[in-house]
Nucleic acid binder design. Sequence first.
DNA 1: CGCTTAATTGAGGAGTATCAAGGCCAGTGG
DNA 2: CCACTGGCCTTGATACTCCTCAATTAAGCG
Lengths: 260, 260
Amino acid sequence: MENAVTAAHLLHRNDRRAAANSPAPVEIMPLQLPACSRRSVRRGEALCSAGESFRMLYVVRCGTLKSFLMSHHGLVQVTGFRIAGDIVGLDGISTGAYQTDAIALEDTEVFVLPFPQCELWSRESAYGQHLLMRTLAQEIAGNRKHMLALGTMRAEQRMAMFLLDFSRRYEHLGYSRSRFLLRMTRKDLGSYLGLTLETVSRLLSRLQREGTIQVQGKSVALLDFPALWRLAGVASDCPNPILEPIIDRLGNFLFAARAR
Amino acid sequence: MENAVTAAHLLHRNDRRAAANSPAPVEIMPLQLPACSRRSVRRGEALCSAGESFRMLYVVRCGTLKSFLMSHHGLVQVTGFRIAGDIVGLDGISTGAYQTDAIALEDTEVFVLPFPQCELWSRESAYGQHLLMRTLAQEIAGNRKHMLALGTMRAEQRMAMFLLDFSRRYEHLGYSRSRFLLRMTRKDLGSYLGLTLETVSRLLSRLQREGTIQVQGKSVALLDFPALWRLAGVASDCPNPILEPIIDRLGNFLFAARAR
DNA sequence: CGCTTAATTGAGGAGTATCAAGGCCAGTGG
DNA sequence: CCACTGGCCTTGATACTCCTCAATTAAGCG
């Protein structure tokens, strides 16, 4: 269950990347990264809970989770759905305790990164620092975008944005951008979008009637991207950039800085 | 226009703090902090704009600003109102360019912190690192809370929360918690709360009719806190903690870590 | 194959947005 | 000093989005 990432390994990745196409990395993580353990979470189980002492960051290796926060009154707001390559637990940094719960929507596996270790990398390497910073800031940017959606958009527009966002994330992982599974329930999706589950269901049905998508339970097919772009209010598929993933589909870390 | 913060100065603050009451700081910033310049922004002018190259962080010394983001379609979402002690510009870290505009709602003065400098402090001192991290994470937490408001709450509840939040922030700065000015327009407030300006106006009028608050143009008085707590849906005034300010009312930096 | 949970669909209503008209206020220039 | 002006605010009437409640069907899971 251990996955040591060595400098040699990193160098290898570096070579492969340079050979491929993109600008060569300018810096290679000089550290011998410590062993990185994994953890499995069964469907319905919690990876971490709000209030729990913050010690770990998690990188999703495979599976899906929902992050959500509960106010004191049982108000629940789903703050995001995490798939492979996403990081879970960042909200624990400020207070020393996780602020959101994360529950697996299917059997899921994550890498475990002890946070003190992350801090050490961050302090000892300019790139590590940059990476951690960028990751946190990315979280901010994502939340901000979601805030804009919740504050200014109509239900249909939010739904279109959500579908396109998920599409892009899956595409970026090497999966189909037009067919995927919505592992969350309509209720969770509604919570994420600031809608009721009935409204979500109606919206999906309507989009299907109009020939924009095809829905059958949890499986979705996007049929008419231009229509979705129009609904989402974007000229084309040009949302904010997806950062280089920290981890690939096989579970290898990708600690290589790009030239900038 | 220069305000050098010296180690001696910090030590002095430390003594004063310890003499007062609170747990003594465990660590003093060992660095000679570089000179810190100020910048004035007139009402209506921009402190920084989205897309602009990210070089500085700003700490509000006095005045008020609104942060907002504009989508490609002219959709505007106000993401926050910044008063003394708040930090502006954090959203620039991820992409190297600011993602939100910040405009002064009144004549405003800020301290200018060159970000490379911040990174240096962060790397050279565990406390500096912690401070920067905590600040970023705080931003995340705040946005998250706002997301919950936009996603799950009714207009009246959002308004109550907003009033109580502002009340607490002013109180924390040493001002009255029950009387303050809403320097933003109804439209900006509406944008922040995900409402139209008419709804905002109606809500304020209603709260006044019910004796909960008193409004006259931009000046507001909170008359019935229990009623506001009830509307906001909190048992009492127990929201998330306000972090130690980084700067005091006189413009002195407070780089002293507390025991924990 | 039942049982439980999730999803769809409909009818009706609450909550906000939209549209429109007028009032208030500060700044401006006669 | 006062009228003028433009932006901001308030208030009302109406429309519409979305929620609530309810009934039914479909889908998961033992």
